[in-house]
Design a protein around this nucleic acid. Structure first.
Length: 928
RNA sequence: GCCCGAGUGGCGGAAUUGGUAGACGCGUCGGUCUCAAAAACCGAUGAGGAAACUCGUGCCGGUUCGAUUCCGGCCUCGGGUACCA
């Protein structure tokens, strides 16, 4: 009568491993399906129950699709480069490779216990030279490429060299750092060093001096997505702006394609929106203003509202703008310098928190509006950012809230040039806010007066272009990605310096392995740790001492899984053509502006150079919710060693203390276990309610210090992997964030015991009846099959678990232990609880015939007792039995079924809305 | 501020295109078995009411024979983002 989960689970895990049950090969007779999890960073803390949530869901889907006859690729690996192992190395001297290997081993043990159907033969580890050889290879390709805006594709840099030597920059539209223009003759007369410097302006991986996010505490620079509110994402340390020479990826070249691609993928609307915001496309125009007393200079500004040119009453430069020194009048110099110094010394964080403070200073200079020839004062203010647009704006206080606040603060004039539809122009001195809306009619604006805003914008842009004082322009918020880290534990750059000029290593010399160093710290002169390595040279030239950032190794790993053992190519044409891209990708939404952007850029680049087959790497993406911690508290009466139960604590003066959730069950404290925890606890006294000590609880982040970390191994040991799998799914919708709470796990465990008992007698002998199931029993089965399949397809894994429970309850009530029911039930449940399913399947023997049952759905009227009618859909009572290949989709099955004489006879004269198909015997579980 | 998302019993959460709100599980209460406990099983469990019945899906209003679902206006809580011109 006993369900021995640990015996069963060990047996099947061993069987799967020994038989390589889940090993996947290219099979052109089967349709492919690629299920991928975001691979984990193997941290020293091991897995907690939050990690497997997504893995369980993807495993269920992978197993389900295998049953459906697909050739499923479901790999796993490790994102193994990262800060924690390096910081541990700095503290202890242990090489990060050793720490990483140890952690990976632990992760693997933990993962294996949960019974995942990963093809471990395809495992990748980003810190393995065999793997990062290809990360370095991609970097070389990026270095050797430029982006042609006309072709909208990356191209080999050699091609550009040839073009330059023939026509210079004439007729070219290239993604670049700074616009350049030169003739073929000029190019040809330049030295090697000069030419290389120019090429750097166009390479997709380039070296440049820029403002970076420098984190002194971590001793490295960070990418924009690694900085949150002015603090480092990892560790929460302050981040400063600093000008440094860094490797950068020209991801902005792909901005538009990143945006367009979002329309072709099946991602959640919120995630797509996050990416759209991060890319931040805005359409507008650049306009050249004249500068009084500087006839040879033009001040370029960017605006999204060229229609408001007549309403511009002043201009603003960012404090870092190059023109500040040049145009400032001598009498304003002192004030301007003071302001620039003030602005420079404000940290990013201060600047962010003091957004509402208006500050600025007048330069004494005037700009000249190219359309109106009006003179407008030029100010300096830090609400204009040097990094966006041109670092200079024309201020239109009447129609921009920030300009409005500035104008009011400094008493600058406000003009109205747009009028709300159906409204009369109003005296701007009475305005309390600007009219920012684009819905309106232009007034007081020369030749565009009377037009609507949209019309006016295009008319002005046309005019600006005619007059050669501006042009239409699209700006993106997206910035190029800083790609250097001053760290040891990352991929070395395959770059060496000859006379200070960077060159890519020969591909055949890859991988460039990480060198040994005596310490994992920067050198005394502040150079990155790799500068400590002896003989860190290539062909006698010094090698790059920075390493690549965390996102390097994770940007193309999905391609590598397709062909992970291939030592000659990142991925073979054959493998890439068969597997194409990821059909289902599961992971957290914290990667929206990092990994999921970089990875898409790499894929597009690899597509451009003919390695990847599609432009989008991840077709469908699901963000599983984070599992939060649920802490338990005990209440100690202040100044005593007495603890009072939750509902009585208001009668006392108490302090809440975290208590280890592992000694609390359903919020009831295990007093004996508590006493054993420490000598102090041993003498504790308790004030109980109803003979129990009830703990309080709160939702917090899962962390060791809060004693609320739930380790999956303990649960697997106690309840088994099948219970854990079912319970994690049962917890709630996959995508919502939810606290971990073991309060309900017993219910799921009970369900599995019940399932086991359905086919076992009191002495734990397997019992099975060969009788034909009754109509009632079949109804239970088919209802469940239908519901569970629909749920899995909708990724509604929690409701599917409920259906299993209902089915087993009903079958228990019917005392049904029929073979036919068991066979199908086992297959159905196996994605969720594979171990028990395998065991029951084996005990019962199997049958692999495939048969579809088709239920026509038609409209009918339901007559309510209150005598009104409403339409409903009913499942038809007639059903078809047709033997068809498993690989067919529902649509294909429908087509075939509808063509049969049987179906035509039945559907005659009836309005059949759709058919529901239930594949009966699905497939042998283990041996795929 | 802006952009998303969500508010349903004591708790986690269910409810095809509007159609018996609260599936399933936890907890609680009662019972069976037992010397007893554990395990297991059975029953009850949104609120009020003896009952018939009434009220109930954040709040207010609307559409409808009928609204958790659709529309308008608010409130609250999450998440993202932030002087992007």
């Amino acid at each position: 009568m006993e369900y021995k989960h640990s015996e069963i689970e060990k047996k099947w895990q061993k069987y799967w491993a020994e038989n390589k049950t889940f090993k996947t090969e290219i099979d052109n007779n089967k349709k492919k399906y690629y299920v991928l999890d975001m691979f984990p960073y193997p941290s020293g803390a091991g897995l907690h129950v939050g990690h497997p949530l997504g893995y369980i869901a993807s495993d269920i889907y992978a197993r389900f699709m295998r049953h459906k006859g697909f050739n499923v690729l479901h790999p796993m690996g490790y994102d193994a480069f990262g800060l924690p192992a390096e910081q541990y190395a700095i503290q202890t001297g242990t090489h990060p490779a050793i720490t990483t290997e140890k952690n990976i081993k632990r992760y693997r043990e933990q993962l294996d216990k949960i019974g995942f159907s990963f093809d471990w033969d395809r495992e990748v580890v980003t810190s393995d030279p065999k793997y990062y050889k290809w990360t370095q290879w991609v970097f070389i390709q990026l270095f050797n490429s430029y982006y042609c805006n006309q072709a909208n594709s990356a191209r080999p840099i050699d091609e550009l060299v040839e073009v330059f030597s023939l026509q210079g920059t004439k007729d070219l539209d290239l993604a670049c750092t700074e616009p350049m223009s030169f003739t073929a003759d000029e190019w040809n007369s330049k030295s090697e060093a000069e030419q290389q410097e120019i090429l750097m302006n166009y390479r997709l991986a380039y070296l440049a001096e820029t403002w970076v996010n420098w984190c002194p505490a971590l001793g490295t620079v960070l990418a924009n997505d690694e900085v949150i509110n002015g603090l480092s994402e990892r560790g929460g340390f302050p981040v400063e702006r600093k000008k440094m020479q860094q490797w950068i990826l020209r991801i902005t070249a792909y901005a538009q394609r990143l945006l367009d691609g979002l329309n072709t993928v099946d991602w959640s609307e919120s995630l797509k929106e996050m990416q759209r915001n991060w890319i931040g496309r805005s359409e507008g125009a650049t306009v050249f203003f004249g500068i009084e007393n500087h006839p040879d200079m033009k001040l370029e500004i960017f605006t999204t509202r060229p229609d408001t040119l007549w309403g511009s009453t002043f201009m603003v430069l960012a404090p870092e703008h190059d023109y500040v020194d040049i145009i400032t009048k001598p009498e304003n110099k002192a004030q301007v310098e003071e302001y620039v110094t003030y602005a420079k010394n404000r940290s990013e964080r201060e600047r962010m928190t003091e957004v509402k403070t208006v500050s600025g200073v007048f330069t004494g200079a005037y700009g000249i509006n190219p359309l109106t020839n009006e003179k407008v004062p030029i100010w300096i203010a830090d609400y204009v950012l040097s990094g966006y647009g041109t670092g200079a704006i024309m201020a239109v206080p009447g129609h921009d809230s920030r300009d409005f606040a500035f104008a009011r603060h400094f008493g600058l004039p406000v003009l109205q040039v747009v009028c709300a539809p159906g409204d009369e122009p109003k005296d701007t001195s009475t305005w309390e806010e600007s009219y920012d809306s684009k819905d309106g009619v232009i007034i007081n604006s020369g030749f565009i007066t009377g037009m609507n805003v949209k019309e006016a914008i295009s008319t002005v842009v046309k005019k600006l272009e005619e007059m050669n004082v501006g042009k239409g322009k699209i700006n993106y918020r997206l910035r190029d990605a800083i790609f250097s880290r001053q760290r040891y534990w990352g991929e070395p750059f395959p770059i060496y310096y000859k006379d200070g000029i960077p060159y890519a290593m020969d591909e055949k010399d890859l991988p460039l392995e990480l060198p040994e160093v005596d310490k994992f710290l920067p050198t005394e002169s502040g150079e990155p740790p790799l500068a400590r390595a002896k003989n860190w040279t290539y062909k006698g030239y010094p090698l790059e001492v920075n390493t690549m950032p965390g996102f390097a190794g994770s940007s193309a790993y999905y391609l590598r899984y397709m062909d992970s053992k291939n030592n000659n190519e990142l991925v073979s044409k054959e493998a890439a053509s068969y597997w194409v891209n990821v059909d289902l990708y599961l992971g957290g939404d914290e990667h929206a502006s990092g990994h999921l952007i970089y990875s898409r850029v790499w894929d597009k680049f690899l597509f451009d150079i003919g390695v990847a087959i599609t432009e989008e790497p991840y077709q469908k993406l699901i963000n599983q919710g984070k599992i939060q911690g649920r802490s338990n508290f005990v209440y100690r009466i202040n100044g005593t060693n007495k603890y009072v139960s939750l509902n009585l604590k208001n009668d006392y003066d108490t302090s809440a203390l975290h208590v280890d959730i592992n000694i609390v069950k359903n919020d009831e404290l295990d007093i004996e276990a508590f006493k054993k925890q420490s000598p102090e606890n041993a003498s504790a006294e308790f004030i109980l309610e109803d003979g129990k000590y009830i703990c309080g609880w709160e939702i917090e982040k899962m962390s060791k210090s809060k004693f609320n970390v739930q380790n999956p191994d303990d649960l697997v040991e106690k309840y088994g992997a099948d219970t854990l799998r079912l319970y994690e799914m049962f917890l709630g919708p996959l995508e919502s964030h939810k606290p971990w709470d073991t309060n309900g796990i017993e219910g799921v465990f009970r369900f599995l015991k019940k399932l086991w008992r359905l086919y076992h007698d009191r002495d734990n002998n397997f019992i099975l009846s060969d009788e034909e199931p009754t109509a009632e029993e079949l109804k239970v089965l088919h209802k469940t099959i239908n519901k569970v399949e629909t749920d899995i397809k909708n990724f509604s894994f929690n409701t599917a678990v409920a259906s299993f429970m209902i089915a087993v309850n009903e079958l228990s009530e019917l005392k049904c232990n029929k073979r036919k029911i068991l066979d199908e039930l086992t297959v159905l449940i196996s994605p969720y609880a594979p171990h028990i399913a395998e065991e029951l399947w084996q005990l019962s023997g199997h049958d692999t015939t495939v048969e579809y049952a088709a239920y026509p759905v038609f409209d009918a009227k339901y007559v309510h007792e209150d005598s009104f009618e409403y339409p409903v859909s009913f499942n038809g009572k007639v059903r078809f039995k047709i033997n068809l290949p498993l690989t067919l989709s529902q649509d294909e099955v429908e087509k075939i079924v509808l063509a049969t004489p049987e179906a035509q006879k039945w559907t005659e004269g009836k309005e059949v809305k759709k058919f529901i198909f239930v594949p009966k015997r699905i497939i042998n579980i283990a041996v795929v």
